[in-house]
Design a protein around this nucleic acid. Structure first.
Lengths: 331, 331
DNA sequence: ATCTGTTATGCACACGATTACATATGTAGT
DNA sequence: ACTACATATGTAATCGTGTGCATAACAGAT
């Protein structure tokens, strides 16, 4: 059915080896035959079969990308960076949704191994990583993104969460605020823990005693941000400044504020992590810790490429990218 | 290096054919040898090489998913539906970003063909489709999603945009409003055209003369929504009701309204297409035409599966999914 | 004419699995 | 004992490429 090198070879009156060499730009082929072969390829509409090629070369030019969720601009921003960078090198990504579930995560990785991907970029769905050791002997390089996991060591691209939080809190303190509430994610996730750590560190450095009642932990989702903001606002003495360490929680918090404008006794200002399309329009968040989202993806791609090509500098390697503090001056 | 059927066969004292049959659940294998083979598979840590399998069976169990953008919850909601459905049948998706660019779209599809994907699900990046004909002879089924294109016929999963718009406008009219502005996308894109058509049709059915000055077209992006809302609000006689036929434009429009609260003379209510996580929190949009986003993906997956398996009922087939009108009662 | 070296091409096997066909074994019926 | 048939397994070809090795063709030097 499909046109193969064999057909091209026959048409051009050469061997399949020659055709293969033409396809792969082997310089030893004479201009004359190269031209003839290329003509036949064109005429017959030949297209290389990458499955066969992969079998022969043991390179699939495909990497797996496993994300806890697909409808999430943060994760997909990373995916975008990964795709853009890998595409330059002829790679594609197989995208899998782990549904924030360790079992599904394992399942997807297993399938990716069986598909012989050249590497895997994983945004872990939890803080645990023991199940990842099962795949060590498959010899497929893995790069973690955004979060680290326990019981599994590998390269990773992360953000400097501690100093990200720190800088935002420091800014607020310098503005004269001393009672700053905190809404964060589950501290078993490294990202959440580090952002909390940055908050605490800034308070300590400025000799401010953390106030337990205004420090709340949830799960990085919209509803959680909503609920925790509600808790804060229903206190007798609600805080006027809240640092929220995740974009989605921040959206949820603002949702609560907008829905309950009348009943809230104080005016609240929000500082938050991430600077997404919608962060600015919500108007209630004028201090933001921006992550270089697409760059995270790019770096992860570069890292996996160098592992695939065994340019192992000093692995395991952990890249920490800096955040940027964005202040929106109230007009 | 890696363990192959050969190794397993040797270890179990059988031929590779037998091992292959065990792997593929061939019922002709005796319980005794099946057990022995499975033990050896376990012991050696054998994992099937899907590249080799694909070469032999000409099935890659992979489909391509080409989207104009990755950081877009609408497109990724579709991707999620696709992934979920295909996963059940053992398929994976290679996700490509066409960057809303026809040339890149063609480029990605070409690569997908060379990777021997079993099918392609495409969210077209423009209204043109002539370049898709190049891939007809590759024999790889294609399913379009969300939009149709000119000069190329194939199956598609779409939304009933006309009646979606219609129902929203009809609702507003029944509420007593007669001056309803329209902000829409480029009418060369079928989706945008149909939503405009629904708007017009509703006005006509209720004997309302469309008013050119309050009908605006942009490009389905946030900035465009912002600009067009600005145009409307800067009119001498700004409309009080605006129907915005796309989620991102709707976000941009609200951004403008929030930023310019003081200078806007009228109170504006917005009706919009799509019902996303953030639609509700913005509070300014209480009438929404909800698309069954994940279901669109599911159906596209089912369609591509039936084409792959040649269960061609009566192709080309166009599925139109119904929208749902969501009214948020102002409390 | 012979040798050396370079360049261009072909032969044939391998990658790791599937599968049509052949064969071996067992069982039962006549 | 012979045939008939079902069951279980093996043999070997095949999918479409890439590539080590062999070889052919030719030029230039001796």
């Amino acid at each position: 059915m499909a046109v193969t090198v064999k057909d091209v070879a026959k048409a051009a009156g050469v061997s399949t080896a020659t055709v293969s060499r033409v396809i792969n730009d082997d310089p030893r082929i004479s201009e004359k035959t190269r031209k003839r072969v290329l003509e036949c390829i064109e005429k017959l509409g030949y297209r290389v079969n990458n499955i066969a090629r992969s079998l022969k070369t043991s390179k699939s030019y495909t990497v797996g990308f496993v994300s806890p969720e697909l409808t999430n601009d943060f994760f997909m921003g990373i995916a975008k960076g990964v795709e853009t960078e890998l595409r330059k090198h002829g790679y594609n990504i197989i995208v899998c949704n782990s549904n924030e579930n360790v079992d599904e995560e394992r399942d997807r990785i297993k399938l990716l191994c069986e598909k012989c991907v050249d590497g895997i970029i994983l945004i872990p769905s939890s803080g645990k990583g023991s199940h990842l050791n099962e795949f060590k002997d498959a010899g497929i390089p893995i790069v973690l993104v955004d979060r680290l996991v326990s019981e599994f060591e590998t390269d990773a691209v992360l953000v400097d969460n501690i100093n990200g939080s720190y800088s935002a809190i420091e800014y607020l303190i310098n503005q004269g605020h001393r009672r700053i509430a905190f809404i964060g994610g589950n501290v078993e996730i490294t990202t959440a823990f580090e952002r909390y750590e940055g908050y605490l560190r800034a308070l300590r450095d400025y000799r401010i005693q953390p106030e337990k009642e205004i420090i709340k932990f949830g799960d990085f989702h919209v509803d959680s941000g909503y609920d925790l903001m509600k808790e804060l606002m229903e206190m007798n003495n609600p805080p006027q400044h809240v640092f929220i360490s995740n974009y989605f929680m921040h959206v949820g918090a603002i949702k609560y504020l907008l829905e309950n404008k009348e009943s809230i006794k104080v005016q609240v200002s929000i500082a938050g992590f991430d600077d997404m399309e919608l962060s600015s329009i919500l108007g209630l968040c004028n201090v933001r810790v921006a992550q270089p989202i697409v760059k995270i993806g790019r770096r992860a791609a570069q890292l996996i490429l160098s592992k695939i090509n065994h340019e192992e500098a000093e692995f395991p390697q952990i890249l920490r990218l800096k955040t940027e503090l964005k202040i929106e001056s109230k007009v």
